[in-house]
């Protein structure tokens, strides 16, 4: 069995102007593993996964997929790597000028894997997988509720059966029941596809449902990693404060300073 991680970050630094967002991230995600990254707003969680997608480029360090460094990758390599990845964006990021089925089948059509008719059939199948009827496929995203939009975004992320799936705040803005539905769909989809998953969330219920492993990022550094079973009694004060949502603790002191 290979010990090579599916995704790895080594000493990744990134600054936006004077603001240092990532300060030496070291993290590895094994194939088939579901990692949840927790951390406060502005701690660098979303930026970290965008370095894998090539949307932002680190100033320093190595971001590798299947052992291959993809920082500054050629267009061809970038296309290959992004072809392995599905992404559920925080706000869904559905294309509002396209009907639902075309959103879901977009990657399949654009990559040339399928023609429009085949992609439509596949999109309707994938929508069924996330609990949406065929009649939804012809609607525009604006005609859907927030929960349905999240499901469509999830369907789009898994439509071409990616090896890696990123979930950016998958339950933000949803009611608790819909959040649980989305969490369970994520677990099912990741398990069925055998994919490697990285989820960013503030929602501890999501983290407990989705994660095999949890990492906490604070001020651009990974300060703790552990199994999901360690989450309720972590051996780190900041993690303990964050997980239990206490106002008092070292994180607040850092904010006040």
């Amino acid at each position: 069995m290979s010990s090579q991680p599916k995704i790895s970050f080594e000493d990744v630094h990134l600054a936006f102007g004077p603001k240092q967002v990532l300060r030496g991230i070291d993290l590895a995600v094994d194939a088939g593993e579901s990692l949840v990254i927790i951390g406060g707003s502005g701690s660098g969680k979303s930026v970290l996964i965008k370095t894998v997608l090539g949307i932002t480029r680190p100033d320093k360090g190595v971001v590798a997929v299947d052992g291959e460094d993809i920082v500054g990758a050629s267009a061809r390599l970038r296309n290959t790597v992004n072809g392995k990845i599905g992404m559920l964006f925080q706000g869904g990021a559905l294309f509002d000028s396209l009907p639902v089925w075309e959103n879901v089948g977009f990657g399949l059509i654009q990559s040339g894997a399928m023609d429009r008719q085949q992609a439509r059939v596949k999109a309707i199948d994938t929508l069924a997988r996330v609990g949406l009827d065929e009649h939804v496929s012809t609607l525009l995203p604006v005609e859907l509720s927030g929960g349905m939009q999240k499901r469509v975004a999830l369907a789009r992320a898994i439509a071409d059966e990616p090896e890696i799936i990123f979930f950016d705040e998958p339950t933000t803005g949803l009611d608790p029941i819909m959040s649980d539905v989305i969490n369970k769909l994520i677990v099912e989809c990741v398990r069925d596809l055998g994919a490697t998953a990285v989820t960013i969330t503030h929602d501890m219920r999501s983290a407990r449902t989705i994660a095999d492993k949890v990492a906490m990022i604070y001020e651009g550094q990974i300060i703790w990693t552990g199994g999901v079973k360690d989450l309720d009694a972590p051996d780190h004060e900041m993690v303990d404060q964050f997980v239990h949502g206490r106002a008092e603790g070292p994180i607040q002191m850092a904010v006040r300073r």
Binding site: K50, N79, N82, I85, M87, L94, F95, Q110
Partner: peptide
């Protein structure tokens, strides 16, 4: 609007170059 709602980032993850599309 596509930029601020991350639709352009989504294009990049779906085998589509936003400049070309």
């Amino acid at each position: 609007t596509m930029r601020v709602t991350e639709q352009i980032d989504a294009l990049a993850t779906l085998s589509t170059n936003p400049m070309k599309y």
